[in-house]
Amino acid sequence: MIRQIVKGLGHLVYPRLCMGCNKSLLEEEDILCLNCNVYNIPRTAYHHIAENETAMRFAGRVPVQKGTSFAYFTNEGLLQHLLHELKYNDREDIGLYLGKQLGYDLKQTDWAASIDAIVPVPLNSEKEKLRGYNQSQRIAEGVSSVLGLPVLADVIERVRNTESQTQKSREERIENMKDAFAIKSPKEIEGKHLLLLDDVLTTGATIEACALALLTVPGVTISVTTIGVAS
């Protein structure tokens, strides 16, 4: 009872506001109110569609078992705002929140049960040092809390800091990411079905390079998921 009173007083001094509409959140809500969660995050429903846009971006390039993204990523959209806060304003809680939302979607599929572990795409070492964390790892931890899967954040590393991908074509991005990753603990993932996770899928060059490195380990199979997918 005392704990609830203290928590209630804390909310009076520092009210919890929805990051979508700025209205006060209910006790059971987190980050977004129910209305913004349902209506202002454009979900893809790709987890119900086998040949979806995310999966098809790797077709003929990387043998991906399954591919899905939680929502469409659009300029000036709410998802872009959330990911910006996660990456640049120390809002690690947003990563956990988005990961849980993705986890709830994945839990509805029949293939998620075959996944052995989640592997977040490693961040550029300089960026991670500056930020203090890898946003994809925080998202993976949110998914993990729903699916009960281990997060293997140390089995793969960036061995080469790459140039910014922003102004590059797909071919240039693929070349830029070539040999950027290396496996640190191959024995830990031998024979496992890994869910490779990143925050946003654009051309897929980074995920592709990461997947190709993981697939050098005997018996590894890869599925891919992201929070956002850019059209």
Score class of each variant (00 low, 15 high):
T109S: 08
K187N: 14
I94C: 05
K178E: 12
Q167N: 12
E128A: 15
G95D: 05
S144Y: 03
D116V: 08
L194Y: 02
D179H: 14
E126T: 15
T162N: 05
L194A: 07
S136G: 13
K187H: 12
F181G: 02
L96K: 08
P150C: 13
D116M: 09
K168Q: 15
D105A: 06
N176D: 11
D90P: 00
E92G: 10
A113T: 11
D198R: 07
I183D: 00
V119F: 03
D93P: 07
W111E: 12
I189T: 04
H193A: 10
R160A: 10
G142H: 02
N89D: 14
I174A: 10
L102I: 04
T162F: 01
S125F: 04
R170K: 09
V159Q: 15
S169G: 13
E190F: 01
I139K: 00
R158E: 05
P122W: 04
I94Q: 03
D154L: 05
Q101C: 14
V119A: 07
I94T: 07
D154F: 04
I94N: 02
Q167V: 14
L195P: 01
M177E: 06
F181E: 03
L147R: 05
V159R: 11
E92V: 09
K100F: 01
Q165C: 08
D179L: 03
G142Y: 01
H193C: 07
I115G: 01
N124E: 12
V119H: 03
R170M: 13
H193L: 07
R91L: 07
K100V: 14
R173S: 06
Y88L: 15
M177T: 09
T109R: 04
G142L: 03
Q108N: 15
A112T: 12
Y104N: 08
E92I: 12
L196C: 07
E128T: 13
N134K: 06
D179R: 08
T109Q: 05
G191E: 08
M177F: 03
I156Y: 01
Q108S: 14
M177S: 05
